[in-house]
Design a protein around this nucleic acid. Structure first.
Length: 266
DNA sequence: ACCCAGGGTAACT
DNA sequence: AGTTACCATGGG
């Protein structure tokens, strides 16, 4: 089935490869394919920006790309600040609505790691322990991962993160970590709950909240965001960025790694 | 050979 | 409460 995805400010190349998701690949000039959960999709974005999607799960993907949220107004608001205006000048990044468990495991794998290798490890994780689906392999369930031993997990080459993955999967499978319940908590309480998982600190917890539970108020502080904050915002993000701080964060992350790299890299 | 990558843990002061 | 070595792996 073929359908159009209409959302303001959606550049697939930027959104899919800005480090918030790890299961998409470029398969042509303007063509992409990927999997979220157990759903495969192929996408094409023409030069005029129009996006054609190939999938039988239209509702799922419209939710995934959060098409009902209007970014124009949000980016205008963020642009009241000088640095954010520069960061948002090149629109097109949207914060996706990813599934919590997949996001949690993905960002556990992300720690002290680079995006290319994160994607490779997740690919091996899915091919080893996910279900075969049309187009590839699903992201493995908490139940499946919880049943594994360290030895069984070793071939995905996640290194020292093996035991973190198992602890997270086991806590989710047992119900000790319950995403529906975490949804009801404040940012601080939700973060604290996630941090009871071995290998989950502030940054990974905030990534799970922002990218996996769509908590747009949360700002994961990786090395690049720390550099941005230290250099541009020593006394914190400006007022105009507080409501959608997570979106501001994603634009600043991209800005720091690409446009302002020379200024910020030490 | 050294340093870094969407960090966190454990063992120190 | 605040610092620091160490953790696997691959690429620059």
């Amino acid at each position: 089935m073929k359908f159009k995805i209409t959302a303001d400010c959606l550049d697939l190349n930027r959104t899919l490869f800005c480090g918030q998701c790890f299961r998409f690949e470029r398969i042509g000039e303007n063509e992409f394919e990927g999997i979220a959960g157990d759903k495969y999709i192929k996408l094409r974005q023409d030069n005029d920006g129009e996006i054609t999607a190939f999938s039988d799960e239209r509702d799922f993907w419209e939710n995934y790309f959060d098409v009902s949220l209007c970014y124009s107004e949000i980016l205008d608001e963020l642009s009241e600040d000088r640095t954010l205006r520069a960061a948002c000048e090149n629109k097109g990044i949207r914060v996706l609505r990813q599934e919590p468990f997949e996001t949690l495991i993905s960002f556990i794998i992300s720690q002290n790691n680079n995006i290319k290798r994160i994607s490779l490890i997740i690919k091996r994780l899915c091919e080893s322990f996910g279900e075969r689906i049309d187009g590839g392999y699903s992201f493995p369930s908490a139940e499946k991962l919880a049943s594994l031993s360290l030895e069984a997990l070793a071939p995905i080459m996640a290194g020292f993160r093996d035991r973190y993955i198992l602890d997270a999967a086991r806590k989710v499978y047992s119900g000790e970590i319950n995403f529906a319940q975490i949804e009801t908590l404040s940012d601080d309480d939700a973060r604290a709950k996630l941090k009871t998982i071995l290998g989950v600190g502030d940054k990974v917890a905030d990534c799970a909240l922002l990218f996996g539970m769509h908590r747009l108020s949360v700002v994961p502080k990786d090395v690049w965001i720390k550099r941005v904050l230290a250099y541009y915002y020593p006394s914190g993000l400006p007022e105009c960025a507080l409501k959608y701080a997570g979106i501001a964060q994603q634009y600043l992350f991209d800005y720091a790694r690409n446009d302002a790299k020379k200024i910020l890299a030490r």
